[in-house]
């Protein structure tokens, strides 16, 4: 145990995800030894993130104004909405450059074990967006696990009667990898989902 401020810092850092007691201590002493202007910049960034960042009123991605950058962009089309669980999924899909439509961030997935039901997700808001009639396709890009699949099925059942095209991202082998290095679960699923050429 250290005294006063340094221990407070270690304790606070230790509460962050992915930071164990050893890392917390290392970061704390790094901060202590760092240039005061660097530390001030970090402190200011921490303050700003809480003061300035909000959630986009349309898609619930992180934003600095009423609407996020993607929702404001007039060059993107409104015909397709890609539904994801978290803002970080938006970033991942944006990196591909494949998608020029809009997003909708649910804020999680249906998970009864953790008490998350449809009412805890931004599903009502999604339905409101779809009712405008401009959207032609809904792309379900929730995680390929039990909860993500359940959320995708739930949305598909909900949206199908509206006559939209509903699609789900494919799952299978990573590109550029060797077949032999794929784990047996992924490879087994890719086998099941094989297609005719």
């Amino acid at each position: 145990m250290y005294e006063g401020a340094i221990q407070d810092l270690i304790d606070e850092l230790g509460r962050l995800p992915g930071v164990g007691p050893k890392s917390a201590q290392r970061i704390a002493f790094h901060v202590l030894a760092a240039d005061p202007t660097d530390v001030k910049r970090l402190a200011a960034a921490l303050h700003r993130v809480k003061d300035l960042v909000r959630f986009c009123t349309t898609c619930f991605n992180v934003a600095e104004s009423e609407q996020c950058r993607i929702c404001r962009d007039p060059r993107r089309h409104d015909e397709a909405i890609c539904v994801v669980e978290e803002p970080k999924d938006v970033v991942a899909i944006e990196k591909t450059g494949e998608f020029r439509g809009r997003y909708h961030v649910l804020g999680g997935a249906i998970n009864p074990l953790e008490g998350v039901g449809p009412d805890n997700l931004k599903i009502r808001e999604l339905m409101a967006r779809l009712s405008s009639g401009e959207v032609k396709e809904l792309i379900l890009a929730t995680d390929p696990n039990t909860e993500g699949e359940a959320t995708a099925t739930y949305l598909a059942l909900l949206v199908k009667p509206m006559g939209l095209r509903v699609t789900r991202l494919a799952s299978g082998l990573p590109v550029g990898g060797d077949l032999e290095y794929a784990d047996e679960v992924t490879l087994g699923r890719a086998f099941e989902g094989r297609r005719v050429l």
Binding site: I110, P112, G117, P118, T146, E149, A150, T153, Y154, L157
Partner: peptide
Amino acid sequence: STLDVWDAH
């Protein structure tokens, strides 16, 4: 409300 989904899965 999500029971149908879990039934299917």
